[in-house]
Simulated assay, not measured.
Amino acid sequence: MTLVTAGVVVLDCAEPEKLADFYKELLDAEETDANANRVEIRGTDGIRMAFRRDMSATPPSWPRPESSLQVHLDFHVDDLDAAELRIIGLGGRPIETKDPSGPFEERGYSDPAGHSFTLRHAATTAPKQD
């Protein structure tokens, strides 16, 4: 018998309805539960997120060290450029879009409430076909 199972990632914010809308659109998710202080969504891949009202929530200050990473999310994408356009169209903003060297390409963003997240694209390791 499993003692603990995975729950849900919860982000504190002043306006949970607006932040839930951002992630619903980004993840093609649906709302599964809502009340006056919390909205929960489930993405098509099963990811569960909730957004809890906290009127004194302060956005993370990334990349400044104070309060820099209260939470950090990674999302995998097939097309970084297309995903970036969608994020900006939904009200998110780029915070670090340099492509680092290594096996992964990644870019940093913040959602409309200031929470940081990263889009990651795994480079193919398959040999080229002639």
Score class of each variant (00 low, 15 high):
1 M>L: 15
1 M>C: 13
1 M>A: 13
2 T>G: 04
3 L>D: 13
3 L>F: 14
3 L>P: 05
4 V>T: 10
5 T>W: 09
6 A>L: 10
7 G>M: 00
8 V>H: 05
9 V>A: 13
9 V>F: 07
11 L>S: 11
11 L>Y: 06
11 L>A: 01
11 L>M: 09
12 D>G: 01
14 A>M: 10
15 E>Y: 13
16 P>H: 06
16 P>I: 00
16 P>G: 06
18 K>I: 01
19 L>W: 00
20 A>P: 01
20 A>T: 04
21 D>R: 08
22 F>T: 00
22 F>R: 05
22 F>I: 02
23 Y>G: 00
24 K>N: 03
24 K>T: 02
26 L>N: 00
26 L>Y: 00
26 L>S: 03
27 L>M: 12
27 L>E: 02
28 D>M: 09
28 D>I: 04
28 D>S: 08
29 A>C: 04
29 A>D: 00
30 E>T: 12
32 T>Q: 07
32 T>W: 05
33 D>N: 11
33 D>G: 13
36 A>F: 09
36 A>D: 15
37 N>M: 09
37 N>V: 14
38 R>F: 13
38 R>C: 12
40 E>H: 09
40 E>V: 01
40 E>T: 02
41 I>F: 05
41 I>S: 02
42 R>I: 11
42 R>C: 12
42 R>F: 08
43 G>F: 09
44 T>E: 13
44 T>K: 14
44 T>L: 14
46 G>K: 01
46 G>L: 03
47 I>T: 14
48 R>K: 11
51 F>C: 11
51 F>K: 07
52 R>M: 14
54 D>P: 03
55 M>V: 11
56 S>W: 10
59 P>W: 15
60 P>Q: 14
61 S>A: 11
62 W>F: 10
63 P>C: 15
63 P>Y: 12
63 P>V: 03
64 R>K: 14
65 P>N: 08
65 P>Y: 10
65 P>W: 05
66 E>T: 07
66 E>P: 02
66 E>G: 07
67 S>N: 15
68 S>E: 15
68 S>M: 12
69 L>W: 08
70 Q>S: 12
71 V>K: 01
71 V>A: 11
71 V>M: 13
73 L>I: 10
73 L>C: 08
75 F>E: 03
77 V>H: 02
77 V>I: 08
77 V>C: 10
78 D>W: 12
80 L>E: 05
81 D>F: 05
82 A>H: 14
84 E>I: 05
84 E>F: 06
88 I>A: 02
88 I>L: 06
88 I>W: 06
89 G>L: 08
90 L>R: 11
91 G>F: 08
92 G>M: 02
93 R>I: 04
93 R>K: 14
94 P>H: 07
95 I>Y: 00
96 E>G: 00
96 E>N: 04
97 T>A: 06
97 T>W: 00
97 T>C: 10
99 D>H: 07
101 S>K: 11
101 S>V: 04
105 E>L: 01
105 E>Q: 15
105 E>D: 10
108 G>K: 00
109 Y>T: 02
110 S>M: 14
112 P>Q: 03
113 A>N: 13
114 G>L: 06
114 G>Q: 08
114 G>D: 01
115 H>D: 13
117 F>A: 03
117 F>R: 11
117 F>L: 15
118 T>K: 09
119 L>I: 04
120 R>Y: 07
121 H>D: 06
123 A>C: 00
124 T>N: 13
126 A>Y: 11
126 A>V: 09
127 P>D: 15
128 K>M: 15
130 D>Q: 12
